[in-house]
Design a protein around this nucleic acid. Sequence first.
DNA 1: TCATCATTTAGTCTATTGCCTAATTACCTT
DNA 2: AAGGTAATTAGGCAATAGACTAAATGATGA
Lengths: 118, 118
Amino acid sequence: MMTRLIARAKWSVMDIQRVFEALSSVTRRKILAYLSETDLTAGEIAQRFDISKPSVSQHLSVLESAGLVASEKRGQFVHYRLVRDNLLNTLNGYVQEVCPVSRPLKKESEKLAKSRRS
Amino acid sequence: MMTRLIARAKWSVMDIQRVFEALSSVTRRKILAYLSETDLTAGEIAQRFDISKPSVSQHLSVLESAGLVASEKRGQFVHYRLVRDNLLNTLNGYVQEVCPVSRPLKKESEKLAKSRRS
DNA sequence: TCATCATTTAGTCTATTGCCTAATTACCTT
DNA sequence: AAGGTAATTAGGCAATAGACTAAATGATGA
C-alpha cells in the first residue's frame, strides 16, 4: 500500500507576518474578494477602485509576496488569481495556535489515526 | 419544539478592519498566544517582552478595541483574557467570504438542516 | 518602425505606527 | 496621610505605509 506523504510547508514566522500584514488593508482584502469570484487582470482590478493604478499595483505586489495571489503575464495583460491554499493554511494554522480549544480534538484525531494505522 | 436562535452579530466593516489591523503585529499576535494559555495581568504580559510597559499597554488597547481581548480590573491589577469567539468568528467569516470553495458545502449543510426540520 | 495600451518602477509627500520617557491615576499598605 | 506598586495617558520622535505623478518597460498593431 502506498503511503501518502502530505507536503507540510516549512513556514517561517515571516511568511505568517506577511500574510497578516497583507490582510490588514481594506483595499487588499477587497482585491482578494474580487479574485474569489474569478481571475482578473491588473487593469480590471484597478477599475474597481478609486485609487491610482500604481497604487493598486503596489497592493498587488504586497499580496503576491505574501503568497495570497499569483500572477501570470499573457500578452500585454497580467492576470491575477487567488491562491486559496495559503490563505486557508495560514489562518487555520493561526487559529489553532491561539485557540487551544481545538487542541484536544486534534489530539483525539491523531490518536485515532494512529490506532487505525496499526 | 424550541427553535434555537443563533445570535448573528451585526458586524461592521470597521470591526473586521480593527481585527485584521490588530493581528498584523507580531507583538500583538504573541500577546494573544500568551493569553491562549491563561489569563495574565498587564504586568505579566509586559515582562515577557523587551519593549516598555507603556508600549505593551498600547498594544493591549489595540487588541481590546478590536474585541480580541477583554480586561478586568481587580485591585491594582488589570487582568487580560483572550476573547476567542471574536477571533474565530472574524477569521471564519472572512475565510468564507473569500473562499467560495466552502460555499457549496455550506449550502449543502443548510439544505440538510432544512430537510431534517420538515 | 512608431504610436498606443497595460503595467510596473521611481521618486516624493503626508499620515500613521510603534517606540520611548516622563507624568498621572488608581489602589494598597503601613 | 504617605509611600509604593500597577497601569495608563501624554507628548515627542523616527520609520513605514500608502497615496500621488511622472517616467520606464514591454507587447500589439497600423
